[in-house]
């Protein structure tokens, strides 16, 4: 009994405590990934299979306006789609913790309360960096290259992680709302969202109404902006609609808007329990 009593708890407020607690929470989630490689493999397997299927199988028959190489067109879409699908990982993790009573335990403790959600987002962002790295290697293997400089390339990666960051907050919010069973079905919600976009074809090739939806999809903004930043976009690619013309602006605005909506919702849900 003596050790804990002699040392006593450190103050529970302050930025340093918040950082330390967040890192403790994040580290545990990362240990999970390290010891549970099947989770990583399955989260990476799907996009890798998409790259193989669309890049190599269908890709030969696909044509992009402007005569662009299809695999080059495809890869930025694959990167962004993988970031969007990351929401499912966050939802599953948060709803599992809630079911176990771990969230209640956290809330009954004298720890920095923000650490639970911040730790979660640190772990998810780091995991997504690994996902992204694997996909980039996969892309390079099928002939994708970045044709721009270091700065635009890094900006593109930044936009991708920004989209993932927005998805984390949607994921935390939904994870505190839905049951663990419902969380397993979130891909059904994500699937149409990631398909009705400019990932595989340009919206101008779709029926008009569908193309409009695809144009306004937050995913499309990130895809179009990263295509441009990687130098993978031809001039004829834009459908000419407002969202397509302002993809760069929307690729920043959409995620920020989602964060502005879902971060307070997620924190409020967490506090209320």
């Amino acid at each position: 009994m003596s050790t804990a009593l002699a040392i006593g708890p450190m103050p529970t407020s302050g930025f340093a405590t918040l950082l330390a607690d967040s890192w403790t929470v994040a580290k545990r989630d990362l240990v999970h990934l390290r010891r549970n490689p099947t989770a990583i493999i399955s989260s990476i397997a799907l996009p890798v299979m998409f790259v193989m299927l669309f890049g190599l199988v269908f890709g030969s028959a696909m044509s992009v306006p402007g005569g662009l190489d299809y695999r080059e067109f495809l890869m930025p879409g694959m990167f962004a789609q993988s970031m969007m699908n990351g929401a499912a990982v966050t939802i599953a993790a948060v709803s599992a913790q809630r079911a176990l009573g771990t969230l209640d335990r956290f809330r009954s403790m004298p720890m920095a309360q923000g650490a639970v959600v911040i730790g979660r987002s640190i772990a998810d962002i780091l995991t997504s960096c690994v996902d992204l790295l694997v996909l980039i290697l996969c892309g390079l293997a099928v002939g994708w290259v970045t044709r721009s400089g270091v700065l635009p390339t890094l900006s593109a990666l930044g936009l991708l992680l920004l989209l993932r960051f927005a998805m984390i907050w949607i994921g935390i919010y939904l994870g505190t709302v839905v049951s663990q069973e419902a969380a397993a079905g979130t891909w059904m919600l994500l699937f149409p969202l990631t398909m009705v976009a400019n990932t595989f074809v340009t919206p101008s090739q779709m029926p008009v109404w569908l193309g409009t939806i695809a144009d306004w999809n937050p995913l499309s903004a990130t895809v179009a902006a990263t295509r441009e930043l990687f130098g993978n976009a031809g001039p004829a690619l834009s459908s000419g609609s407002w969202p397509a013309e302002n993809a760069m602006l929307l690729a920043v605005a959409w995620p920020l808007l989602l964060v502005a909506i879902f971060m307070p919702l997620a924190i409020r849900r967490y506090r209320k329990g």
């Binding site: 804990a4 708890p9 403790t24 545990r28 720890m111």
Partner: peptide, 16 residues
């Protein structure tokens, strides 16, 4: 893990 969230140092956490 829980000891660290109660703000024990790594050494104290392991001892506890």
């Amino acid at each position: 893990f829980w000891a660290r969230l109660f703000h024990l140092s790594p050494r104290a956490a392991a001892m506890r």
